[in-house]
Design a protein around this nucleic acid. Structure first.
Lengths: 218, 218
DNA sequence: AACAATTTTTAGACTAATCTAAAAATTGTT
DNA sequence: AACAATTTTTAGATTAGTCTAAAAATTGTT
């Protein structure tokens, strides 16, 4: 069984590794965990000793299969708890991240599997991110950014890149929520803002910043 | 906010104080937490510094109102999570204690209140123990032990004293579960065993040991 | 290829929670 | 009231995780 702290390091490394295929630097880990590079060096040496990652001095770290498994288990728990909080307890999707950060460390395979069943084996969490299955597999769903859509195209809002509460609250206010269908009416070449139509009804303007942070399912 | 460990000490002291009205000794605390008296001395000095309890050298400790409040909050969370695990996730009542020990330390007032609402504001947990309300009040329910019941009396099984899995499993097997009505048919003076009738149907024998651990609502 | 800038590691120290072993206080018994 | 038994505290050490500051390695630029 791994400590709260060990688990947090594994998840942070997993998330960093997802984007860039190379080894993850100690500084990058320190940044994402709000700690110092010296602390990271200590911890990755410890995790390396447990064969959860491969560490080369001055080169950075790469998770082993065992380490990846632990990290994916945490992501699974995090996203299932978020789904529970929103679907069952009626939290809003911008309130649940911090709570799920705590709940993901509850140790029990049986609990997470029963939660999964209770929720009806959801495929996505309230932010549109895919929920890993028991076997660690994730249904990848080929989402694209709103900014990448051409004029006249249709798609469904299915996730966000930026998870900050302020952004999520903005989306809520504009009714840019999961499942809404969007048609691109016009793309403004000057500032990259877009006119879009929601659910074949309301027409609104979104900035490039927003378009760059909304994930769409075609 | 208090640490996981501080919370565990407060809850343990609260539970010990419930039975005997005097100050709780460091040794008693050490026993109930599987730690050593020396460690307890350190921790109670720390908690005393935070005004959560009153500590007198060689005399033991008594919780302050603030300390009691924290402990009752933990009991509330523990019993609500146990109710969730049994009612919603279909765990059996002998499986949930360890999980609730973890879940009770999740920090969020809002979460516990929403959980309470989701469960329909239950008054008792799956073991029949009363669940404290938001304001810390508990509906006391004047339960008596089965062994205290006279012959020909009727009552409802409403709780257990001993929460060990082996006892709970025994109860399940005998159908001695919460809500069942019991009539005392005969009390054996020799070994204090009892003959009882369940739900006006099946007649069974229970030992003094069992009768001493079943809480009944008259 | 040398060296300045940057990144990373090492060394040593700190805190929270724990332990063992020894010292001190309390209690009970005669 | 004295003293043996028990309980409790103190002293000093340990572990996990963290930090700062200094040393070492790497990288980029000329």
């Amino acid at each position: 069984m791994y400590s709260f702290t060990e688990e947090n390091y594994l998840k942070a490394i997993y998330k960093l590794q997802e984007r860039q295929e190379e080894a993850v630097s100690t500084n990058a880990i320190a940044d994402s965990l709000n700690t110092r590079a010296a602390s990271v060096t200590d911890m990755v040496q410890k995790l390396s000793g447990k064969s959860l990652l491969i560490y080369e001095k001055y080169k950075g770290v790469v998770l082993t299969e065992a380490g990846r498994k632990v990290a994916i288990g945490l992501v699974r728990k995090h996203r299932l708890w978020e789904t529970f909080l929103v679907d069952k307890l009626r939290f809003t999707w911008d309130e649940v991240h911090e709570l799920a950060e705590q709940l993901e460390h509850i140790k029990s395979e049986e609990l997470v599997d029963k939660l999964d069943e209770f929720l009806g084996f959801p495929k996505h969490d309230p932010h549109g991110d895919p929920i890993p299955q028991q076997d660690g597999k994730m249904l990848s769903q080929a989402l694209i950014l709103l900014e990448q859509m051409p004029e006249k195209a249709f798609a469904i809002i299915s996730g966000v890149v930026n998870h900050s509460p302020v952004f999520l609250q903005y989306l809520q206010k504009q009714n840019l929520v999961l499942g809404i269908s969007v048609e691109v009416l016009e793309k403004n070449a000057f500032d990259k803002s877009m006119s879009i139509r929601l659910n074949a009804e309301k027409e609104i303007q979104v900035s490039a910043e927003v378009a760059r942070n909304l994930l769409m399912k075609v």
